[in-house]
Design a protein around this nucleic acid. Sequence first.
RNA 1: GCCGGGUUGGGGUAGGGGAUAUCCUUGGGGACUGUGGAUCCCCGGACCCGGGUUCAAUUCCCGGACCCGGCCCCA
Length: 420
Amino acid sequence: MIDRLKGFRDFYPEDMEIRENIFSTMRERARVFGFRPIDYPSLELLEMFRLKSGDEILSQTYSFRDRGDREITLIPEATPSTVRMLVARKDLPRPVRWYNIPKLWRYEEPQSGRTREHVQMNADIFGDDSAVADADIIGLACSILNSLGLESRYEVRINERKIMEYILTESGSRNILSDMAVIDRFHKSDKEEIVSKLSANGMGSENAERMYDFLGRKYKINAIEEGIGEFFNFSDFREKIQRLERTGEILVDNGFRDVVFNPSTVRGLAYYTGIVFEGFDIQGKFRSIFGGGRYDNLSSLFSGIEIPAVGFGMGDAVLENLMRDLDLWKQKSKVRRYYIIGIGDAGNLAAVKMAFSLRDRGIQAVAHTGGKNLSNAMKTASNLNFTHAVMIGSKEIEEKNCTVRDLASGEQKNVNPDDI
RNA sequence: GCCGGGUUGGGGUAGGGGAUAUCCUUGGGGACUGUGGAUCCCCGGACCCGGGUUCAAUUCCCGGACCCGGCCCCA
């Protein structure tokens, strides 16, 4: 026996068929939102990720030196490659809307919802700094989840990095990035820990207490300004707040109601420059289903060209956790699959012929080859998950029809093969 | 990298310092040849790996691997 690598997964047909459904839902939703597919290598220069994320990420990559002594790595995230492709084509008319569903790798300890290899849908809009673009990105993520039957089973928490930076500064923070990291851990830490860390970073304990209370809040998207006003009074950032409210309103007005403003959603350190968001299951059982935000500086880091950008990533692992939990991990509608059983020599010939003929019409059909008797053939049809068994013997050949049995209901009728 | 809990045929399990390791299911073969998606008969297939204790280890101890979950970190 050869073992599979730790943290990697095999997929057998019963799961793979469901996964393919999910991926085609993602592609279809992306298509109607105006996104076009791209793809890029699974191996890239390590330097690209060092540039974006610093050395921190390097300890978590599958990286090595190739025969030309280049430091290369299996890609741990999608955005850098996408941006690399974008800035390499200066002729592209903007805005650019791209998506991809790549495999990504991280060398870390596997746990629930995270493996060493996963598939993550990514969609980005480049060259459009509007609130509509922000709303489209979140809307696409929501639209995918809704199409998968997850409507009202998740909520999207949104926030704005600039607003948080401002509030932190006004509250006396002397280290914005480090405080963002503290805030990012809001749901994993207790009050004492957060308050003391924030206090130590510059804001007094009174401000830190107030900040803590603020972080735990959730507001409807049309009440962000009032919500913030309960804790802080300032007017300099009305514009940013209004923009965030506008983004939220677009979503709510178009049927995506489960969007809330949540101050503790800040997405770690990262490179986000505007809106940030994360989707969670409403029960709070799993890790985030998707996450993303606006990152207007990344392309200039890569090329010196400034191109505004907003995007999200949605991994397959948490999605599977959630869908299994809600009993949605199953084939949506059963496509017809015919198992054609010939009886006698003439019947066997006719069965094979009929299988080819059905396939020409795009219908899945397999001719029984096992011999034996009819009841065994029926058992095979049933075990192999066919929806219908078709019987052809001398009687049918004479009458130019076939006997079709619905294996779920047991109903049986004689029909002309062309009418299937 | 760290912490906790696991590991018996393909899947699910029983058991246990000594015997042919239990049961269900799945898989394979045969009988049966127009519908009992049955039935009957037969056959495969497992104690995660290494070391220790012991006359004897699948069972007890230690280490490792892997799985599940958590931490760190984060997509």
